[in-house]
């Protein structure tokens, strides 16, 4: 945390090679605390790879990733989560056999500090913490609009609700940084409008920093203060929504430049 500006996330010169293939090259991203930050780019540009690097699914080949000033590159996933980074998945990964409520309650686990013996003997500490857990989880479900579905099996929810449940699950971990991997995928216009509102509400209610990957330009342009465009694992540019929309390199990346004679 340097000087006047506190960064939630600082990614510096990060590269990732998969046996010769360069999935990420010289990525530099600074996300301020409390910001909503967007990462866009065509399919296969290396956006999810970046999330996997931040959450410790992969270790970067080189470079540094700092979360609130602490180096996290290469740490195991569960430790990074415990430090306060939570994510959702592009290809939904819920605890499918469990109910909506059980999914959320499970995710709250790091905030429960009782011991194994406390749990088996049902001590006061256990009962108090479990009661608090129930209150917190039900409250988040209510705010995000899944309260009425709490006893449904997660795998039986409609697609959009499953994505929403992933967001709830990330919030209850108590994270300070949320990474949303294509939260609007498969949503219609109305649903993605609603999602934009939810994302803004989450930042306000839970004081979190949010990084979003998405193809839905309307969501990204609507909620993100800063946007980075990635193509072929490299950063094209960073800027506000207006700057991005008028950037020639970005337009070329999305629409293609007139040099495609070879394919």
């Amino acid at each position: 945390m340097s000087g006047q500006q506190a960064y939630a996330l600082e990614i510096t010169d990060v590269c990732k090679n998969f046996s010769g293939i360069q999935a990420s090259k010289d990525i530099n991203i600074r996300v301020k605390e409390g910001e909503i930050y967007g990462i866009i780019g065509p399919n296969g540009a290396g956006k999810t790879t970046l999330f996997n690097l931040i959450t410790g699914v992969y270790a970067p080949t080189s470079g540094s990733i700092r979360f609130l000033g602490t180096e996290i590159a290469g740490k195991p996933t569960h430790e990074i989560s415990q430090m306060g980074i939570a994510r959702t998945f592009q290809n939904i990964r819920l605890f499918g056999d469990l109910t909506v409520y059980q999914n959320v309650l499970t995710a709250y686990q790091h905030n429960l500090t009782y011991s194994f013996l406390d749990g088996i003997l049902r001590t006061k500490k256990f009962r108090q913490q479990e009661k608090k857990a129930e209150e917190v989880c039900l409250d988040v479900l209510r705010r995000i609009g899944l309260y009425d579905l709490r006893d449904q099996h997660a795998s039986k929810l409609p697609y959009g609700q499953q994505r929403r449940l992933e967001i709830v699950r990330a919030i209850v971990t108590g994270a300070k940084l949320l990474l949303l991997d294509e939260p609007a995928a498969g949503m219609n216009e109305e649903e993605s409008l609603e999602l934009s509102q939810i994302i803004k509400d989450i930042r306000k209610d839970y004081h979190v920093t949010i990084v979003i990957i998405d193809h839905h330009m309307d969501v990204i342009m609507d909620v993100c203060e800063q946007i980075t465009v990635i193509n072929f694992g490299e950063m094209l540019t960073t800027g506000t929504a207006e700057e991005i929309q008028s950037n020639q390199a970005v337009i070329d990346a999305y629409l293609g430049v007139n040099d495609d004679a070879e394919d």
Partner: peptide, 15 residues
Amino acid sequence: IAVREEELAAKSVGI
């Protein structure tokens, strides 16, 4: 149970 259901998601909530 979370480990049984989905390992990566379990890791991602700090398990």
